[in-house]
Amino acid sequence: MHAFNYHRAGSLAEAATLAGKGEAKLLAGGQSLVQAMKLRLASPSDLIDLGKLKELQGIKSDGKSVTIGAMTRHAEVEHSAEVKKAIPALAALAGMIGDRQVRAMGTCGGSIANSDPAADYPAAVLALNATITTNKGKYEADKFFTGLYETALKPGEIITSVSFQVPKRAAYMKFKNPASRFAIVGVFVADFGTGGSNAVRVAVTGAGPCVFRQADMEKALSAKFAPEAAAGVKQKKEGLNTDLHASAEYRAHLVTVMAKRAVEAALK
């Protein structure tokens, strides 16, 4: 990797100040960023390591929501009794990220800030109508992910925690890229049990340039939370990704299949 200056932030305020420098980047777990730097695809001038900021770590649950500190490792979420109890689908999702060594280092905040089009966490953020808290304010999930590797975060802004709303039932289904094991298509279905036309949220990752909500499916599932309701909705292929591993058409088909299976799992 190219040379850079390493800084270990002693406080959130110090991190924010340092993050404003030149081409600085925040370093969370490093499981994506450091790999990109090794391949010289990313070359920050400064790296601000958030690893020692205790205030960014930990999991809290109050029955209505589960709040995960930005620097909480995937493995902690995967194995957290609190998360498993409140939102088992979220714990399961965390357990599907990368591999167990990557999960021991990778963080919730890092994953969300990176907005990788094939990452898992963004699907949970969107489907569980999460609130992203930063050192400067709060974002609603629907306004956070803005595009391919893009979010609403401003330069120097640091995610501190993410609050996921507790649904009545939910599940995440992921069809993995055989090589990278990222999502070719991942669908998170959450039924909040509120009744009405917006009781269910469906988020799709991997399929497009950025995670998105599947409105037709949400409508159908809000009307009837059943596998066949999801199966009856066809995803349009326009705007979806095409690569070596999956055409847009195949991805569109998988969105429906994964949604159907997610509903089946949520009902179990």
Partner: peptide
Amino acid sequence: GACTVDMDGRAVKSCAFLAMQ
């Protein structure tokens, strides 16, 4: 995963992060 080591009781990939971390 050939670089896997144990850090504070967890298996991690030592090629995937900085020594400073």
